[in-house]
Design a protein around this nucleic acid. Structure first.
Length: 846
RNA sequence: GCCCGGGUGGCGGAAUUGGCAGACGCGUCGGUCUCAAACACCGAUGGUGGCAACAUCGUGCGGGUUCGAUUCCCGCCCCGGGCACCA
């Protein structure tokens, strides 16, 4: 009896062997095509969960496959090691975030090694190592030199639970913190920003250069960047009589074609002019009510769409530049200070929000763009002057139509990007009262954090010189390790840290005590992997030029905007600095689905966790790897279910047994035929070639589940062959080939089992992971007989087996002569016969 | 409201270019082995009718194109995700 499959006896043995022989270390090899396969690096929480198992198993199969296809494959791993969970854990366990983090990295690295992933561990980065974060600080200084760093005061997102500010991208759709789910509030604070908006247009345009990204992710990024084309329009402030004063207020609008319908003007409650306008006037009380209640409201309430809009008249007016009309200036909470200019021209006939506001406060709603099928069209078509001051409509009309009551523009097409929009904007531009403009929803990236466990911002506040960058030769600004977070301390509580001298004037100065958003650390780690141990530069460009861009990036959909947008931004800045020669870091992106249990994401707090360690203890790492890939295609969410594990275990056992039996028979000298011509041998041979082709193709399109199905089919066919052919009559060369081929096909999925089979059972000297991918001959995959399905009036009535090279006419004649076909065609006229070569014959009768 | 996905047996899923729907696996049922169980192996398994051959229905719903539609077109329903007082 051949030895049976025992993962526990082999897995750790081979892990030690691979580590000792360093078979997964790579260097630049100019003689081979390169592939950079990367999975998003993990936060070192200490435990490995099913999401990790899935993510890293996918990457491992891809990396091993490309290696076997003769490519030079970079497949690194590292740790996104700064961040709040370390501080929270340290507080809980009365420890230090660093101690906790480094211990977790050890533990988690051991788990990853236990899974048998093929990483080049020599390239590991830990973002909390000074050797790493100094280059993050260096990047910050370079960004600063390029004018991409700004310290400014603005209303920012504050998470009361994390006790720090958040970037816009880090606030979820429901107004909660992405990490802790607390409700985020707004605070006016002075903070550090990276000017990602300088790259808004390019970040949007270059999405078209990424055919290897899922449309979903590109749509989400485009949505987030939120480009709108329109115009700026200047409105002059005027006095009660309508006489313009010197001051103007500019608005952004996507509909300058509706300017003739502007019947009031709005300012955001936070707009600086509001107080100036109303202080000491009869309007002050009502206006300040609106301002105060807007301040009180949470971000969620404020943005609730069906909320009653509050407003008040300021007592002031502006002049509409197209018709000289005096327009009242109101304040309303539906105008946002953060978007556009914080001021809006209200056109109630063309905008539902303005319409509702006008009805509530009894303001006029003159129509200016009407649809041809609207009852007003007949009445107003061609009418230049305003004859109708209020529409009979119940809702605004925001669609495309014809301009009316619009002076010289009357009769033009109105709507977004319309003839009228362009004509009005040009008219304004000629007079210096407006211009074409583009607005983005994307805001600058707020990167300062009022927390300890992060990368210190390399800046000094000097009372004489202002903000001064830390000189490059003084990097890194070391994060002190004696901060006691259990007492709630941050860098701002450490005089030894912040008391310093100004690098410029030498006078007493205060070091910046904010740290950088951890997303800055993860925005360039994939570049550092190319040259991870470089102490003289962030990387050697010849190395990034060899490895980059990442050919296949794999990670969770939750980073569709966050990490992926930030990394694209960083790459473009490095390109402008001349440090890299490409504009996009990730050529192909696979967003892996979540692993769920009972319909919810697995999490400790929810208590619905299946620990990978338990599965490994029972079945070994190989079964777990293969099973999680077999359960579903990688981009779909996956509902975890232990029930199928036995099936994968059975399959691996069957494959093992087959290979071991073949090897044992050969060792025992059982002889048989070679290059046998019987139909069973031919059929197994063609199945072998078909399956190699199918598995190759499936891996390249990430269909790991169907690749495994195909291997199961090969094993089934191999057993069928053994059953059909008595010992001594089998083609032993073919069987040996099937056994070796199967081992090679399995090796990216179950690397330990394949290694044991290859070296100990099949008797090879060197690792299976240094072997080439098996060759396959598409022509050998075709059998010499083909079965046709024969349809009569669209229903399959019979099957017909003919020689593969039979002429179409013969096939058709044979099909028509079939008994079952005759049954369904007698007494009817054959009207048409369609023969799809190699597949089916469709007979139409009537 | 706008923009993306998705809806196929009891379950996970397959069908790559319009060509035999349900590959492969789980589960279930029946059998072999066994004193028995476990393991393993063999067979059956979309629904309905039928002893069977077979017939018939069937990929969210309703239409359409086609010899032929899970696949393409039109109109809906449901589920998931993103964006949203964005001017």
């Amino acid at each position: 009896m051949p030895r049976s499959y025992d993962p526990h006896a082999i897995e750790e043995k081979w892990q030690a062997d691979w580590e000792a022989t360093g078979i997964y270390s790579v260097t630049e090899d100019v003689d081979k095509p390169k592939k950079y396969v990367l999975e998003m690096f993990p936060y070192p929480s200490g435990d490995i969960h099913m999401g990790h198992v899935r993510n890293y198993s996918i990457g491992d199969v891809v990396a091993r496959y490309f290696t076997m296809r003769g490519m030079s494959v970079l497949h690194p791993i590292g740790w996104d090691a700064f961040g709040l969970p370390a501080e929270n854990a340290a507080i809980k366990s009365n420890s230090h975030p660093g101690k906790w983090t480094y211990a977790n990295i050890e533990k988690q690295a051991a788990s990853f090694k236990r899974m048998g992933f093929s990483y080049d561990w020599d390239r590991t980065v830990k973002t909390c190592d000074p050797d790493y974060y100094r280059w993050g600080q260096w990047s910050f200084l370079k960004f600063w030199e390029r004018g991409l760093v700004e310290r400014k005061s603005s209303p920012v997102n504050w998470c009361p639970s994390c006790k720090t500010v958040l970037a816009n991208e880090q606030v979820l759709g429901d107004g909660t913190c992405w990490r802790c789910k607390s409700v985020v509030t707004k605070r006016e604070l002075e903070q550090w920003f990276l000017k990602i908006t300088d790259y808004a247009q390019e970040l949007l345009d270059d999405l078209d250069e990424l055919p290897g990204w899922p449309d979903r992710v590109k749509a989400m990024q485009a949505n987030w960047i939120g480009r709108s084309e329109g115009a700026e329009v200047d409105f002059a402030l005027c006095d009660e009589s309508g006489e313009p004063c010197d001051e103007t207020i500019t608005v952004f609008t996507t509909r300058p074609d509706t300017l003739f319908g502007c019947s009031f003007f709005l300012l955001a409650p936070e707009h600086p002019l509001v107080k100036q306008f109303v202080v000491g006037t009869q309007y002050e009380a009502a206006v300040m009510d609106v301002v105060k209640s807007a301040e009180m409201e949470s971000a969620i309430d404020r943005s609730s769409a069906d909320k009653e809009r509050a407003g008040a008249f300021t007592g002031r007016y502006v002049v509409n530049p197209v018709n000289g009309e005096k327009v009242p200036v109101w304040v309303s909470d539906y105008v946002l200070m953060e978007y556009g200019t914080g001021a809006v021209m209200a056109v109630p006939s063309g905008d539902q929000r303005d319409f509702d506001f006008a009805r509530k406060y009894d303001l006029p709603i003159p129509p200016v763009v009407v649809a041809e099928d609207d009852e007003l069209f007949g009445q107003l078509s061609g009418v230049r002057e305003r004859v109708l001051a209020d529409v009979p409509w119940d809702i605004a009309f925001a669609g495309d139509g014809v301009m009316v009551q619009s002076g010289e523009f009357t009769g033009m097409r109105g709507g977004k990007a319309s003839e009228g929009m362009k004509a009005v904007t040009e008219w304004l531009a000629e007079r210096g009262q407006g211009r074409f403009n583009i607005n983005f929803r994307l805001r600058d990236w707020l990167i300062s954090r009022q927390r300890y466990w992060g990368n210190p911002i390399p800046a000094v506040h000097c009372p004489a010189c202002g903000l001064v960058p830390v000189p490059e030769d003084q990097l890194p600004v070391m994060l002190p390790m004696d901060v006691d977070v259990t007492k709630g301390e941050t860098l701002a509580d450490h005089p030894e840290f912040y008391e310093t001298t100004c690098p410029t004037c030498g006078g007493a100065a205060r070091r910046e005590t904010d740290t950088m958003d951890t997303f800055t650390c993860s925005s360039w780690y994939y570049l550092r992997y190319c040259d991870a141990r470089n102490d003289d530069a962030i990387w050697d460009p010849t190395k990034t030029d060899y490895w980059m861009p990442v050919d296949q990036y794999i990670g969770g959909i939750e980073h569709a905007i966050l990490h992926l947008l930030y990394s694209r931004f960083f790459t473009k800045v490095y390109r402008d600095m001349g440090l890299v020669s490409f504009a996009e870091p990730f050529t192909n992106l696979l967003t892996q689905g979540m692993v769920k249990l009972d319909g919810a994401t697995m999490s400790k707090s929810r208590g619905n966790v299946v620990a990978p360690e338990e599965i490994i203890a029972k079945y070994g790492a190989d079964t777990l790897r293969a099973y999680i890939l077999f359960m579903a295609p990688p981009d779909k969410d996956l509902e975890w279910n232990n029930d199928g594990l036995d099936g994968m275990w059975r399959f691996l056992g069957r494959a093992w047994r087959y290979i071991a039996e073949v090897a044992e028979e050969a060792a025992a000298g059982v002889s048989g035929a070679a290059a046998a011509g019987d139909s069973a041998s031919k059929s197994l041979r063609s199945e072998r070639h078909r399956v190699v082709g199918k598995v190759s193709d499936d891996i390249e399109r990430f269909q790991f589940n169907t690749a495994l199905s195909a291997m199961m089919e090969l094993v089934n066919a191999a057993y069928d062959y053994r059953r059909a052919m008595p010992a001594g009559t089998r083609d032993v060369v073919l069987e040996r080939d099937v056994a070796e081929t199967l081992t090679l096909l399995l090796s990216p999925y179950v690397p330990h089992m394949a290694e044991e089979l290859w070296r100990e059972i099949l008797g090879h000297e060197t690792s299976v992971h240094l072997e080439s991918w098996p060759a396959w001959d598409p022509s050998a995959a075709v059998s010499d007989e083909i079965e046709y399905a024969v349809q009569v009036n669209g229903k399959v009535r019979a099957h017909l087996t003919v020689a593969a090279d039979a002429p179409t006419d013969d096939v058709q004649a044979a099909a028509l002569a079939l008994e079952k076909v005759v049954e369904h065609t007698t007494g009817k006229t054959v009207r048409k016969v369609v023969v799809v070569p190699g597949k089916l014959i469709s007979i139409v009768v009537g």
